[in-house]
Simulated assay, not measured.
Amino acid sequence: MKVQLNIKIEQKDLKLVRKISEKRGEGVADFVRFAIRMELGRLGFLDSDEMKALGVST
């Protein structure tokens, strides 16, 4: 089940996220979801298959 999350970030960070998202051809929400998953993987909170799918080395 997906839920909505509201966050506050610095304006300069939002501009950078928008710029990167646009260059990748994705939305800001997709970028943020991917960044969260990458950090969860880096911290070891995902199983090995999920980490492999993200390209996170174990």
Rank of each mutant, 00 (worst) to 15 (best):
R18K: 13
G55C: 04
S57Y: 05
L16G: 03
D47S: 02
D30N: 11
L46Y: 00
E50D: 15
V3C: 10
V17Q: 04
V28F: 08
M51E: 15
V28E: 00
K15M: 09
Q4K: 14
V32C: 08
A35N: 08
V17E: 00
G25P: 00
V17C: 01
E50L: 05
E50T: 00
L16D: 10
G25D: 07
Q4R: 14
G25T: 07
F31A: 10
G55N: 09
E22S: 12
I36H: 03
V3D: 13
T58N: 09
L14N: 11
Q11C: 04
V28M: 03
R24F: 03
A29E: 13
R42K: 15
V3T: 11
F45P: 09
F45Y: 15
V32L: 08
L5T: 15
L43D: 08
F31V: 01
V17N: 04
G41P: 05
R18L: 03
K8R: 15
I20Y: 03
D13Q: 13
M1I: 09
L14Y: 09
E50I: 02
K52C: 00
E10T: 06
V56K: 05
A53Q: 13
E22H: 12
E10C: 07
R18C: 01
G44I: 01
L46H: 07
E10I: 06
Q4H: 15
V3N: 12
G41I: 02
L14W: 06
S48Y: 01
D13V: 05
G44L: 00
I36A: 11
V28Q: 03
R18P: 00
A35Q: 06
T58I: 04
A29M: 06
F31R: 10
K12F: 09
R33G: 06
D49P: 00
R18V: 03
E39T: 01
V3L: 12
I7G: 10
G25V: 05
D30M: 07
F45G: 02
I20F: 03
G55M: 05
K52H: 10
K23P: 13
D47Y: 03
I9E: 10
I36G: 06
S48D: 12
V56S: 04
M51V: 05
L14G: 10
E39P: 01
K19G: 01
S21L: 02
D47H: 05
L16E: 13
D47F: 05
L40Q: 12
D13N: 12
R18Q: 11
L5E: 08
L43S: 11
L40N: 07
A53R: 15
G41T: 01
K2A: 14
A35W: 02
L40D: 02
F45S: 08
R37V: 02
S48L: 07
L5Q: 13
D49A: 13
R24D: 06
Q11V: 05
L43T: 07
E22Y: 04
D13F: 06
S21A: 15
F31W: 08
F34T: 10
N6S: 15
